[in-house]
Design a protein around this nucleic acid. Structure first.
Lengths: 223, 223
DNA sequence: AAAAAGTTTTTTGTATACACTACTTGTTTT
DNA sequence: AAAACAAGTAGTGTATACAAAAAACTTTTT
């Protein structure tokens, strides 16, 4: 009874490489580390209070995750994305989200639909409060529930992977969002389609939703 | 004039981590390293004649690439895929290949169409010779030409990433392939759609092609 | 003053050392 | 004989050392 704490502590172990990986990833996603910025091993090691070994391993992981560019003997830098890259990613996201919406409509549970409603409520409420960080968090949660409802783990992973690449630009777009009515209606319509297990309609709304969002993101980056 | 060799040599440099990464990747794809097999750092270091450092970095990369599983303090092993995982991947591949076929129909050059015909010719010829390795190589080439014709680098990368995960099982399927007439007709019809820049038709055939292939792969693994 | 050559400094690449955890084997206890 | 315990062994995690290349800075040459 008293040893659950010990067990928890045992599971809390994370290799330093993963701590570094998460720290750098977060830094890149939030924009604290800017595109093009050099990532010097010694400097990072000093800042994070570890040796170069876990830093280097984390950089290799970030390279494969497409968050940093790595040139042999030259070092690493935060990946920069061109407008074309963003367009390309959004194009992929569109078909994957559509696939996800269709699968979710087939497999979603009532419990998950309730969670979806709750996430949407938080989304609207955060927007009214003007809390753009929470707007993004709630929106991400809303979509994550859908992905998990697909029952396709690989899809969850791939969408999360490509979403991460454009996360920075999605923040920018949501901060500029003045009117919530369109995404609001789309979320409600999507929940509705799920309640009716209407695959065709869920795909249709999803496609629309991502297309609209893509247009807004692209507009917001070409200031 | 004489220094092109020097220049080549200069560009030939690859860090050991990348050499190790490529070696292990190839081993996993060809099946020399079996699913579930443990990858011991010391053993690999001895076999490849390098220290543990590049081995470890390569293992981190392979983890993110989803080719190995990595449990902290326990080590790495070649990733095993369940039938469900394979189904999941094929489901994703279907929509991405369809997207690729549509984009390719819009953007493909006559030069690329010629390459496509050549790859298809090699495919048929290898099949007639009973050379299943070359069948797979030619088929891969055929699809790679299409991906590159999309003009969407991110798509190329993601499809290659997920294709790699099921590469082992695609080999098995192609080795069992007794009759080439269906893929043969589909390839020809696809080339035809490209020649006419017929987006809708290209997508349709692609969907069919991958659906058929998926069914065959799934049948071949559930012996 | 600009270019070239040489020198120092910074940074990455690789190997190695040591600590600590997980596993194995053998022993003791019941 | 099974379970519990205790070495001993093998393996991963992290830090550090040194080599080699790239970058920055100086000096020399023109």
């Amino acid at each position: 009874m008293a040893d659950y704490k010990v067990k928890l502590a045992a599971n809390e172990y994370l290799p330093l490489r993963d701590v570094v990986f998460n720290t750098l990833k977060d830094g890149i996603l939030t924009g604290r580390l800017r595109p093009g910025e050099r990532l010097l091993e010694n400097q990072l090691a000093d800042e994070l209070g570890v040796s170069r070994t876990p830093i280097r391993e984390a950089l290799r992981m970030l390279e494969i995750e497409n968050l940093v560019d790595l040139i042999p003997r030259r070092g690493a830098q935060v990946k920069d994305m061109s407008e074309k890259d963003i367009k390309n990613v959004l194009e992929i996201r569109k078909v994957l989200e559509e696939l996800a919406a269709g699968l979710a409509a087939e497999n979603i549970t009532n419990r998950q639909i309730a969670e979806l409603k709750e996430a949407h409520r938080a989304f609207v409420e955060a927007f009214d409060r003007g809390d753009s960080t929470e707007v993004l968090a709630a929106d991400t949660r809303f979509h994550d529930i859908i992905f998990n409802a697909t029952g396709n783990d690989k899809l969850v992973q791939i969408i999360s992977n490509i979403s991460i690449q454009i996360y920075r630009y999605r923040i920018a777009y949501l901060k500029l969002l003045k009117n919530i009515s369109v995404p609001n209606e789309q979320h409600i319509a999507l929940i509705n389609a799920f309640e009716n297990r209407d695959v065709r309609r869920a795909k249709e709304i999803s496609r629309e939703h991502i297309t609209d969002q893509a247009m807004e993101i692209l507009r917001s980056i070409s200031y």
